[in-house]
């Protein structure tokens, strides 16, 4: 027997990384289901393509790094990356672009830094950001829900809001447009609801803990509510922000990626709040349709600093 294993503790819970990852994948199913309901089978195709490309890249990278390929392929982490990327991009995205994004995510954002556990940036969001700057047009057109996926594509609610405000329409006029639903964007609010459901499942199963999601949602909702109160004509309400874009997917699935997040409870509150705030700022004043990806990447940068200053008090040590 391995000498280390003859030492205590002699038993561990056996709740392994693959089991964590597959629970996360399971929790993403509602989002996929809603997307299929809204846009047809194309989102499924996207997830499949992203998964295959990501697995191939993972195998290639492991092979090049001379690591054993199988256990790492089975850990499921690369599938989570692929699924998040595929569900975050518009279903109309050309497949080759998606494949490029997945390749960047796995090879550049994950393995160039040393693979599982070593990446300072969220791989899926690196892939998303690269796609967004490379193919801004394709990345910002979402199909209208219900129709065939190629029938008609249009700007998202967040985009419409931005352009509308720039052109000095009032909030009420903009929100009467077809891109808006009851509280957020048509379709978008259902996707967010599905992500919320999956997220609550993860919370219940203790796969993610409440600090990051809550802090992030608060980071979006609080400034949104404040500005909405003072200037409802120029700023959308908190409920709109919570139900728009990738808010819920970001709060429960993206920001909570543990590897690139802050690691103590307090650190995670800071980290989550930072993502929320940045998301809202980018949405309110930035040039991009949604802020989650960039907010996550920027806060990833700040993680070492946050970790440095949020070491919890140790038992028996004062201060």
């Amino acid at each position: 027997m391995d000498a280390a294993l003859a030492q205590p503790p002699h038993v561990i819970a056996g709740f392994t990384v693959p089991r964590v990852m597959f629970q996360v994948l399971g929790a993403l199913l509602p989002v996929l289901a809603v997307q299929i309901h809204l846009f047809g089978l194309r989102p499924l195709l996207l997830v499949a393509v992203a998964a295959i490309v990501a697995l191939a890249c993972e195998a290639l990278a492991l092979h090049l790094r001379q690591r054993s390929v199988r256990p790492s392929l089975r850990d499921g982490s690369v599938l989570v990356t692929a699924a998040l990327l595929a569900l975050a991009v518009p279903p109309t995205l050309p497949l080759w672009q998606l494949a490029l994004g997945a390749t960047v995510a796995v090879l550049l954002a994950k393995h160039a830094y040393g693979g599982l556990g070593q990446n300072p940036f969220n791989p899926a969001m690196v892939g998303y950001a690269v796609l967004l700057v490379s193919f801004p047009l394709e990345m910002t057109r979402w199909p209208a829900p219900g129709g065939a996926w190629d029938a008609m594509t249009g700007a998202t609610a967040l985009d419409t809001l931005r352009t509308g405000l720039r052109q000095s329409y009032t909030m009420q006029e903009i929100q009467a447009g077809p891109a808006f639903g009851h509280i957020g964007a048509t379709g978008g609010e259902w996707i967010n609801l599905a992500a919320l459901a999956g997220g609550l499942y993860l919370l219940a199963r203790r796969i993610v803990r409440w600090h990051i999601p809550l802090a992030m949602l608060a980071g979006i909702a609080v400034p949104a509510a404040l500005f909405h109160v003072f200037d409802p004509g120029a700023h959308a309400s908190a409920s709109f922000h919570l139900a728009a874009g990738a808010t819920m997917l970001g709060a429960f699935f993206i920001a909570t990626d543990p590897v690139s997040a802050a690691t103590s409870d307090r650190g995670r509150l800071v980290y989550g709040a930072g993502i929320g705030l940045l998301t809202w700022i980018i949405r309110a004043w930035g040039a991009f349709p949604d802020g989650v990806a960039f907010a996550v990447l920027i806060m990833n940068l700040a993680v070492p600093l946050i970790d440095r200053y949020t070491v919890p008090r140790i038992y028996g040590h004062s201060g």
């Binding site: 294993l5 392994t16 990384v17 982490s77 556990g117 409870d265 919890p312």
Partner: peptide
């Protein structure tokens, strides 16, 4: 039961939530 094979730390923080000494 035998332990699973060791994998890299994913910084999940589960360890910190159970540490009685409040460590990370």
């Amino acid at each position: 039961p035998a332990r699973a094979a060791e994998m890299p730390c994913i910084r999940c923080g589960d360890c910190a939530t159970v540490c009685p000494a409040g460590l990370l």
